[in-house]
Design a protein around this nucleic acid. Structure first.
Lengths: 246, 246
DNA sequence: TCCTTATGTCAACGCATTGACCTAAGCATA
DNA sequence: TATGCTTAGGTCAATGCGTTGACATAAGGA
């Protein structure tokens, strides 16, 4: 007995009588992150909430970042729930990207706290497996599939981080609004082109993700073997032509 | 006298006799960031190096992030030195993106420390002005130029942040190597597609930026008004046709 | 000369992290 | 069942961190 999975464990109850394990630490941490009033997750508070010395957490996670990574991986797993790859690889790939991006944005503070973008957890691996499967089904060679999917998923994660900064409730928020307003009065001598599009500048505070996603999907659809008309490399089309235009 | 630019200032020498100003704080901070032995920049060390109480820095920058942003903006400015927009907007845009990305990667620790991606400083504004000018010259309408350039520059910055994490010398570094190796032995039942491309997985540790840049440039070249042959909106070509394929 | 106030300093807060410690859990053996 | 060993894991104290509020003082205008 005293096993978790197939591993022997030797858990001692804390002073408060709680028996710790990684899952309950993640649960509690998620609860703290959700808590109102910004940045509620700290190692010390987590210790209090768990009924343990804060340093006990370091027996389970190398540091705070490792814990955050574990949480993020769980979120990715949640976002994958119910995902089914459809007949059109472009549509499925887009949905995968949207799900991953959205799952990160559900907890902006988590994303912002985290310094490593790549969780390396089982759920992200699963997302990778699905995505690469989609590209393989589109006819990409293995090495191209890996490369293209890495481009795709890294962009989704990196932009999620950037968007999270925008969503995090802080003084940053109001500053950004002020900034967008200040755009309207840029000195035309120094920034002639910005001044020329002055009226369109407020939209820069919106997320770049949708637009980037469109561009990536567009580029991938054309890069796919046997894709639509492209004069540059005029091979005879080979391989099954995927549905065009999603 | 006692003016900086057109602003009155009232600088008192520190206990050590130094008279502070924002530029010298940035200089000193940059020197600390460069210093060997990781994470040499701390507010307290900066205080020591400046010959001032650490808290004096907060009279010049709202917090550490604001200081980092100011440094990053200077780096962007440096990276823009000598940049000339050439005749081909696609080539120029690509170079602009590469320069900004590269300037951030020159100081990975800075990038990683920073929580806000957008510096909102004069140099980033100049980069924005140049980039939007390029898109306008390509024939994009103002609102499209703003939107597309935001997509472009945000991606460059966001991926720079991700790449910086890879470059930062830390235990992360070695872990990533180990990870790439571990890829080779993924359980094929759980991750069939990953297993199928197992030999190509080590390349995931490389930066996604070049590939993403290619895709964005490709998508933009096709989105440009009067762009090359695309059956969808088969207008007669108008405006100068940009060189394809760079 | 006085007044205002920008700016330097100090002490304190809660933070993540770590090394030393200690103690009980689980094993082996009899 | 009892005994003893090893060590995972809980605890404690201390470090350096960013940040802040209270305070002090000199710069510069009137």
């Amino acid at each position: 007995m005293a096993r978790v999975g197939s591993e022997r464990v030797r858990r001692r109850p804390t002073r408060a009588g709680v028996v710790l394990d990684p899952e309950m630490i993640i649960d509690t941490a998620l609860r703290l992150i959700e808590a109102p009033g910004g940045n509620a997750l700290t190692v010390r508070r987590l210790g209090v909430e768990l009924g343990a010395d804060p340093s006990a957490i370091y027996r389970y996670f190398r540091d705070l970042d490792a814990l955050l990574l574990a949480i993020a991986d769980r979120l990715i797993g949640d976002s994958l729930a119910g995902f089914e790859a459809g007949p059109d690889w472009l549509v499925s790939l887009r949905e995968l990207g949207e799900r991953v991006h959205r799952s990160m944005l559900k907890h902006p503070r988590l994303v912002q706290l985290r310094s490593t973008r790549f969780t390396a957890g089982p759920n992200e691996l699963r997302a990778d497996d699905i995505g690469i499967g989609l590209l393989l089904s589109a006819g990409f060679a293995g090495s191209d599939a890996v490369r293209h999917f890495r481009d795709f998923i890294d962009t989704a994660l990196a932009l999620a981080t950037m968007d999270a900064a925008e969503l995090t409730p802080s003084q940053q928020q109001t500053e950004d609004r002020a900034l967008a307003a200040a755009y309207a009065s840029l000195p035309a001598e120094e920034y002639p082109h910005l001044a020329a599009v002055r009226g369109d500048l407020p939209q820069v505070t919106a997320s770049a993700f949708p637009g980037v996603l469109d561009k990536l999907i567009d580029a991938l659809s054309r890069a796919a073997p046997g894709a639509g008309p492209r004069p540059a490399d005029g091979d005879a089309e080979r391989g099954p032509a995927p549905a065009i235009g999603s």
